[in-house]
């Protein structure tokens, strides 16, 4: 054997045949994995709307101008916050913290004191915006953040690994981590569910719009506690919103009549919380 061949040619490129063969094999593998991936990708986004086809809400003869009503869930929960009447008493925050056994710094609904254009200030309660396209949902590495077909963005504290990627992604600072041992929960005789989560150390928590109460026709704790009738809870499907001052309104008309706006509309998150301004307030992210 000649010695020259004993030395590998370091200047050779990679073995083209090996690379091509490997890529072909991997492409085949990848192809086989498509259904699996498609399933996961689907699970990570909004649940398929046709889950609810055939539901009682489906009209037999839908108005054809209305689009596919059949593909819609029974409810689409939302909130309206009337900043004209908020005096910053923080009853909402306290009621929420009591109901969910939160530590004082965990303000699932937080009342921010904001500056208005004339240098004065106004109060702005901020719950979870329950975005229709929630940035927090996409970035969770283990899919612990879920979005129900009724539009509630919830956290499964039995799955959360505590990466805090959702805290980075939320444009509304609406997520709170259990940095220390949480307070013992009030015993509601229920297991831990995303709708009524039990805080666990090392997991994230956020406003759930009292998802356990809504199906029963009850109001979220914050809405119930608001003495000024600032907080409204609504259903976009049924087109109603109510507050604790006994008022009930046709939601779409209420929003239109009061020029309601959403916070950081430009981000395309489609929040399901509307704000009603009226005293020189501006809603502008920082």
């Amino acid at each position: 054997m000649p010695t020259t061949t004993a030395v590998p040619d370091l200047r050779d490129g990679p073995d083209r045949r090996t690379v091509l063969a490997a890529f072909a094999a991997a492409a085949a593998l990848g192809g086989a994995a498509v259904p699996l991936v498609a399933y996961r990708a689907d699970a990570a986004t909004t649940p398929a709307p046709d889950d609810h086809a055939g539901h009682g809400a489906t009209p037999a003869a839908a108005d054809d101008t209305a689009g596919p009503v059949a593909a819609q869930p029974e409810h689409a929960w939302c909130m309206v916050i009337d900043l004209r009447y908020c005096d910053g008493c923080k009853s909402c925050t306290k009621a929420c913290q009591k109901r969910h056994s939160l530590r004082p710094e965990q303000t699932w609904i937080q009342v921010f004191e904001m500056e208005d254009e004339r240098g004065g200030s106004f109060h702005m309660p901020r719950p979870c915006m329950m975005c229709e396209d929630p940035p927090c949902l996409k970035v969770c590495p283990v899919g612990a953040t879920i979005r129900t077909d009724e539009g509630l963005v919830l956290v499964d504290t039995d799955t959360c690994v505590g990466s805090r990627a959702c805290m980075a992604a939320c444009p509304y600072e609406a997520r709170y981590f259990n940095w220390r041992e949480p307070r013992p929960p009030v015993d509601l005789g229920m297991p831990n569910t995303p709708q009524m989560p039990v805080a666990r150390r090392g997991t994230v928590g956020k406003c759930v719009l009292c998802a356990d109460r809504l199906p029963l026709g009850e109001l979220p704790a914050c809405v119930e506690a608001c003495p000024m009738g600032v907080l409204w809870v609504g259903d976009l499907v049924a087109d109603v919103a109510v507050n604790t001052q006994g008022a009930s309104v046709v939601l779409s008309q209420f929003l239109a009549d009061n020029d309601a706006v959403r916070f950081k509309e430009e981000l395309g998150t489609h929040p399901r919380v509307w704000y009603i301004l009226g005293h020189g307030q501006k809603l502008q992210g920082a």
Binding site: V37, R40, A41, A44, T45, K138, V139, C140, P141, V142, G143, T159, C160, V161, G162, S163, R164, A165, F177, N178, R200, R201, G202, T203, V204
Partner: peptide
Amino acid sequence: HIGNPVRLYELVTHPNTSAPVF
């Protein structure tokens, strides 16, 4: 860095393929 390191196996069993962290 992770809040719940015992659950790290979920990156394999329960991944969200749209997440940069995954």
